[in-house]
Write a protein that binds this DNA or RNA. Sequence first.
DNA 1: TTCATATATGAATATGTATTCATATATTCA
DNA 2: TGAATATATGAATACATATTCATATATGAA
Lengths: 112, 112
Amino acid sequence: MHSCKEHVEKEEKIIQNIPDDDNILSLSELFKIFGDPTRIRIIYCIYKKKMCVCEIAESINMSHSSVSHQLKTLKQARLVKSQKEGKEVYYSLNDEHVEKIFSLGLEHIKEM
Amino acid sequence: MHSCKEHVEKEEKIIQNIPDDDNILSLSELFKIFGDPTRIRIIYCIYKKKMCVCEIAESINMSHSSVSHQLKTLKQARLVKSQKEGKEVYYSLNDEHVEKIFSLGLEHIKEM
DNA sequence: TTCATATATGAATATGTATTCATATATTCA
DNA sequence: TGAATATATGAATACATATTCATATATGAA
């Protein structure tokens, strides 16, 4: 056969198929957001209807502070949006892809 | 209106829509795997054809050791499979969902 | 067998991050 | 105005993890 080094030279075009650094980083950042159980739970909470921080915290049994921090993360990633109503701030999903990405993920783990 | 506490009592059914802990954890573990740029690059490498550790390392310009560690992670998550050929070990994708999850992710970041 | 190459892996290090704690701001109500 | 409630946030802590380094194993070639 041939050595590994020869392989790499012959297959250099593969490198061109890899998205550029910006896309790689954006993509991994996006998935990193979904890679935390608390954030998954929060997203499920507001999946069907908007909820305020207090409701979310009670529902998933986490501290208000922790939920607030994670909501900030989710908002910076533009996956949720917020809407102030009096004392309360209501959060809801901001992206139609979230549902699809979730269902694919669930499909995957159910087949494993 | 009504207080936040009243809200939570009225909406208790929302909790039932949240998948159980096992599924939440499996889902976040799955996305966590995709949440690292090195692993994303590796997956792109072996997206179309199997590659050995050495080829992957050269392609993404990472140390063999680092790539090997990450391949172990990917294999434990059952996203890649390996196949020994002589001195070399070839890795390839092990899941038809990966492609779909990636395309959705790319769709998302391109619209942001 | 000896050497070179390919891969794997435990340990150490460095970095990132989730949660908690204390505190600040804002709103509503008495 | 003062008290209670809802949310936000900086700092500290605790924990997870990506990479490196050193080393081990395995295969093939000389």
